[in-house]
Amino acid sequence: MSDFFSIKNLRASIEGNQILKGINLEVKPGEVHAIMGPNGSGKSTLSSVLAGREDYEVEADEVTFLGKDLLELAPEERAREGLFLAFQYPVEIPGVSNINFLKAAINAKRKHAGLDDITAKDFMAMVKEKQAMVELKSNLANRSVNEGFSGGEKKRNEIFQMAMLEPKLGILDETDSGLDIDALKIVSNGVNKLRGADRSFIVITHYQRLLDYIVPDFVHVLFEGRIVKSGGKELALELEEKGYDWIKEEVAIHN
């Protein structure tokens, strides 16, 4: 097994409804895994549970991230260990400056790693570099978190934050939904620039379109709380062509 990221038999329910019914997934350093599925299959629950949202009752045989039991960690500890969730619906936080909050986040992470606070000079250089990468206007970086941002700007801001925080595992929760092609290209470019031998991604999406730009190593199909099919990037194309119905039929036959 991989020490990097491994999920075994992950189950989650909310108010008595079981949404995830036994997820198994293994991600190695540098890999990009796409998780696709129809509405209501449990995609967003999976990302919320991994990031540590408290609304769910979670059980699993194992969820390991870098050798640690992920489910034992608070959301902020998961982030400091190197997990990053790009939200499907980033919240607006009036009055909290994007930049100040990011600086606090970076320093919390550095402190956790036994490092000193980042210097103002290094921080500003980093801001400049990363906001150019996702073509985020500099005035947005200085504004309140997501306040008054357009849908595309919010998603770019998520990728900007991801670039600043340099996670080991990035989870993109339907980052593509609602984006036009131009914005999708910018966001995907940003992610592609962050790809590397020691950084992995789980890309959760409803649409195959995103995977034209972020080409995955593996594609998994999530249906009714389980991963029912896994394959290479060609699986995504098959889904695009045939829709999700054939998967539903296949599952029905097996049951």
């Binding site: 540590g52 982030a79 969730l85 909290v96 919390a108 309140s144």
Partner: peptide, 26 residues
């Protein structure tokens, strides 16, 4: 705002720090 709390925590800020930021913003 609990959503805002979770958002800030998911970026690595501890509960107190997230509280503080939101109250200061308020």
């Amino acid at each position: 705002d609990e959503e805002a709390m979770f958002y800030l925590q998911s970026r690595g800020l501890g509960k107190e720090a997230a509280h503080r930021l939101l109250v200061q913003a308020f």
